[in-house]
Amino acid sequence: MRRFSFEELIKHCVDRQSPQHNAAWRQFYDDYKGHIYKCVGERVRDYNNSLANRDPGKLTDDNVLIVLETLRKKLGNFRVKEGEKKFLRYLATTSCNAVNQYMRPKYISGMVDPPKADQPFSRKKIGKNTAFEVYDFLIRTLRRSNSGKGNIERDIHIFYLYKMNGLSQTAVAGHPCMEKVNPRIVEVATARIRKSLKNNPEFIDRLKS
């Protein structure tokens, strides 16, 4: 069977009316599955280190399916003339974004809810890039849903130190810029953030997906 060139491949994959559509997707999968699995696998491992007792192989397969589904919808956004080298970067970004959307709520849920005995939770094992993306998402979500509330910056900071970074309550209470904070206030601030996340429609939607 004739192999498509890169330009033809993308064109037939995007065009659902094309008689070569299915053949093009088969070639696409053969050509790029290795790259997609590599990108997805790395990010899934990163999250999964903190979410114990999940089957990493199954999680990777689930996430690859999500990436392929995303590509079916969004492949048309890629400008073919930018070439295959840029396409590999586009695939890596798409893969990471899809994994983030799927795994991030599960990770945040593990952080927000008290850990279960059979599902220990550890923030420390998450990679720096992934931690940055989770943090960025949390800050944006919390600032958007709590704008105008007086203590939100302080509460976010306490939540980060206590829940995301694993500092003890007494260490947080000894924070040099928060003199009136005691372990009880640390608990209250964390509970406020937890409630805010649980009531946040964006967070709930992503948790369901």
Partner: peptide, 22 residues
């Protein structure tokens, strides 16, 4: 606090210094 919340690098480093300090 606003800077620390906005800047992940500073937030991480501040947390580590606070941990050791405590």
């Amino acid at each position: 606090l606003k800077h620390l919340n906005s800047c992940f690098h500073c937030e991480e480093e501040f947390a580590e210094v606070l941990r050791e300090y405590h």
